[in-house]
């Protein structure tokens, strides 16, 4: 399959909304029609043709080259196909995504994968705050799918998530998994203060013991659970390094007892 390639000519002066550039919204469009799609977020009109050089191909396989952190909404609400991005992206990458694959060969801004319901977002660099989290006014964050971050994540990764899996191979900022309703969040590196803050249900796995745990989490002892083997088998497909964490007994902390208290934080011992 020959990809549709969009090569950015120079860094954009204004923030751009790239959410129209997803396979199902490009289907059936000609080169001219794609070039005429408006991307501006200010009063100054900017089209795809103004920003990108276009090489036509299959819209189900999109390559965005020379991306920069002013490109917002990359892969937003995509439902199928693949988008590969070379460079950094701005906020809301893969937000509300329901299917397909979004690969970012760079860093992502805040709200990456926010509210997504399916598909997979892979970020080779680091992610900003509220990875997979809920957006302003929403009652739930991520509701399905998988997010993999090869680098670090900012604060409140997995905020309010309801379902799905987030894998952070590096470190995570404060309040990872805050207000989790359910789902799975793994932080292979060091997690910042208060992981699982106000979580109701759900599973957080920490590769390293956390320096500052909320006192409203209670120790349930060290266990080698069958469920961890199932989790490892699923995760291995996305992150071999992360799956290794589950191959040994882990300490189970239950919480957050300040709320429902049916969540759990597993962490490596010793």
């Amino acid at each position: 399959m020959k990809p549709l390639v969009l090569t950015a000519r120079e860094p954009s002066e204004q923030r751009l909304d790239l959410s129209p550039l997803v396979p199902h919204r490009l289907a059936g469009k000609t080169v001219a029609q794609i070039a005429a799609i408006e991307l501006q977020t200010t009063r100054q009109r900017i089209t795809v043709g103004d920003v990108f050089g276009l090489r036509m191909g299959d819209v189900n396989l999109l390559h965005i080259v020379n991306a920069c952190d002013r490109f917002d909404g990359v892969g937003e609400a995509m439902s199928a196909g693949e988008i590969h991005v070379d460079g950094d992206v701005g906020q809301k990458a893969g937000r509300l995504m329901s299917g397909g694959l979004l690969v970012i060969h760079g860093d992502a801004g805040p709200w990456a994968g926010s509210g997504m319901t399916g598909g997979c977002v892979e970020i080779s660099g680091s992610a900003g705050d509220r990875l997979g989290g809920s957006f302003v006014g929403e009652t739930a964050g991520m509701r399905g799918g998988v997010i993999v971050v090869r680098g670090d994540a900012g604060e409140r990764a997995g905020d309010h998530m309801r379902r799905g899996t987030i894998l952070i191979e590096g470190a995570a900022g404060a309040y990872a998994g805050s207000r989790m309703i359910a789902g799975t969040l793994l932080v292979r590196g060091r997690a910042g203060p208060y992981p699982g803050y106000l979580m109701q249900r759900g599973t957080i796995v920490l590769g390293q013991a956390c320096d500052l745990m909320s006192p409203t989490f209670v120790d349930c002892g060290v266990h080698d659970l069958v469920a961890m083997r199932l989790m490892a088998a699923f995760i291995r497909e996305y992150s071999t390094k992360s799956a290794v964490l589950m191959g040994r007994p882990l300490r189970r902390m239950a919480g957050d007892m300040a709320v429902l208290g049916k969540g759990e934080i597993f962490s490596a011992i010793g």
């Binding site: 659970l225 069958v226 469920a227």
Partner: peptide, 22 residues
């Protein structure tokens, strides 16, 4: 009971006296 979904698989974890029944 704890519900866990991995991909298209849905499991229940039931706390029992030797750990969990999955």
């Amino acid at each position: 009971q704890i519900s866990k979904r991995f991909g298209d698989k849905h499991y229940w974890r039931l706390p029992v006296m030797d750990g969990e029944f999955v």
